[in-house]
Simulated assay, not measured.
Amino acid sequence: MGGRWDTETFASILFVIFLGSVVAFNSYLSATKILGAQKTSLLTSTEPLVACLLSVFWL
């Protein structure tokens, strides 16, 4: 199960890591500052449901 590990592959992996962690966490902290902790946690708890529904309808 070999693969090609070139510059494009590493750049893609770094992009996914950056977008999935740094940007998402910064967005969460900004939302907490604007909306408050209670509303932000309620919105965050709907994420798994939305992800499931999107995957069912999209895929």
Rank of each mutant, 00 (worst) to 15 (best):
G2H: 11
G2P: 12
G3W: 02
G3P: 06
R4W: 01
R4F: 07
R4I: 15
R4K: 11
D6P: 10
D6G: 11
D6T: 02
D6N: 12
D6Y: 07
T7L: 15
T7S: 11
E8K: 09
T9W: 14
T9N: 04
F10T: 06
A11M: 07
A11G: 05
A11C: 08
A11P: 00
S12Y: 10
S12F: 06
S12K: 15
I13Y: 12
I13T: 09
L14F: 14
F15H: 08
F15L: 03
F15Q: 09
F15Y: 12
F15G: 02
V16M: 12
F18P: 05
F18M: 10
F18C: 06
L19M: 14
L19K: 12
S21I: 03
S21Q: 04
S21F: 06
V22H: 13
V23D: 07
V23S: 14
V23W: 06
A24V: 15
A24C: 09
A24K: 10
A24Q: 11
A24T: 14
F25P: 04
F25R: 14
F25H: 13
F25K: 14
Y28K: 10
L29M: 13
S30Q: 03
S30P: 00
A31L: 08
A31W: 01
T32N: 11
T32A: 05
T32E: 14
T32M: 13
T32I: 08
K33L: 10
I34M: 00
I34C: 00
I34T: 13
L35R: 03
L35T: 03
L35V: 02
G36Q: 01
G36N: 02
G36H: 00
G36I: 02
A37Y: 01
Q38A: 15
Q38V: 15
Q38L: 13
K39C: 01
K39M: 05
T40L: 04
T40S: 14
S41L: 09
S41N: 10
L42G: 04
L42M: 14
L42T: 12
S45P: 00
S45N: 07
S45A: 14
S45D: 05
S45Q: 08
T46F: 13
T46P: 00
E47N: 12
E47P: 06
P48R: 04
P48D: 00
L49I: 12
L49T: 13
L49M: 07
L49V: 08
V50E: 04
A51M: 08
A51W: 00
A51T: 04
C52N: 07
C52Q: 06
C52F: 01
C52V: 11
L53T: 07
L53R: 03
L54F: 04
S55M: 11
S55G: 01
S55F: 04
S55L: 07
V56H: 11
V56Q: 08
F57R: 02
F57D: 06
W58K: 06
W58N: 04
W58Q: 11
W58L: 13
L59E: 03
